[in-house]
């Protein structure tokens, strides 16, 4: 291309390409905006979106499988064994509950929303909901307490377990004493596991965040 042609060609290109751009922008000026006015209007989430965890504590049997599945250890569960004289009820799937669940905490700040805790649950009581707006000013408020047992109930449950354990131990000791002619077999010291749960008592508020 000669110099002169190049010169005019450049000018023509500048003008025509600018015109193409201007045409595009003016067309977009009159196309409806794609903006969604978020707090007022919300996008529908996909059906299987994974957001805040929710625990239906009525169905929880305290099996601890979700806590074990959690890759970031954000679920902490403590249980107290129920004694035979207590009826803890059944879950909605018909399973008999054998354990009190005084502590069922999910630190949602740690949660990575993988959903791995949902699959192992035998009663399907832990699930991912579509709630995603739960920011807090204090991060401690993100530690959700799902257990509804009051401190009183926890002490009662512990007391009952302790008594039952003591009775069992005593029975065992008596049986052992009766069975063997040799006296003074020391009773097995396994009867005091609830002691480790002493610290959890104050923490276990019946605080359901939803």
């Amino acid at each position: 291309m000669s110099e002169v042609r190049l010169y005019f060609n450049n000018i023509w290109m500048a003008l025509s390409t600018a015109a193409i751009g201007m045409k595009t922008t003016i067309r977009h000026l009159f196309t409806p905006a794609v903006t969604i006015q978020y707090p007022d209007v919300k996008l529908k989430l996909p059906e299987r979106a994974r957001n805040r965890l929710y625990v239906n504590i009525d169905d929880c049997i305290g099996c601890d499988q979700c806590a074990m599945a959690c890759p970031v250890d954000c679920i902490s569960i403590e249980t107290i064994k129920g004694t035979p004289d207590q009826d803890l009820g059944v879950t909605s799937t018909g399973q008999k509950k054998r354990l009190h669940v005084p502590v069922f905490d999910i630190d949602i700040a740690k949660c990575c929303y993988c959903g791995l805790c949902v699959y192992p649950c035998p009663t399907e009581c832990i699930m991912m909901t579509d709630v995603y707006e739960f920011s807090e000013f204090d991060r401690h408020n993100l530690n959700y307490h799902y257990s509804r047992m009051s401190p009183g109930e926890i002490t009662v449950a512990k007391e009952k377990l302790r008594k039952a354990d003591e009775e069992a131990a005593a029975k065992k000791a008596a049986a052992a004493a009766a069975a063997a002619a040799k006296p003074a077999t020391p009773p097995p010291a396994a009867g005091t596991p609830p002691k480790q749960e002493g610290g959890a008592q104050e923490q276990a508020k019946p605080n359901n965040p939803s």
Partner: peptide, 13 residues
């Protein structure tokens, strides 16, 4: 407003 609508946004609301 013009810049926003040219980019398919809505600007101040």
């Amino acid at each position: 407003k013009v810049s926003a609508h040219m980019q398919d946004r809505v600007a101040y609301m």
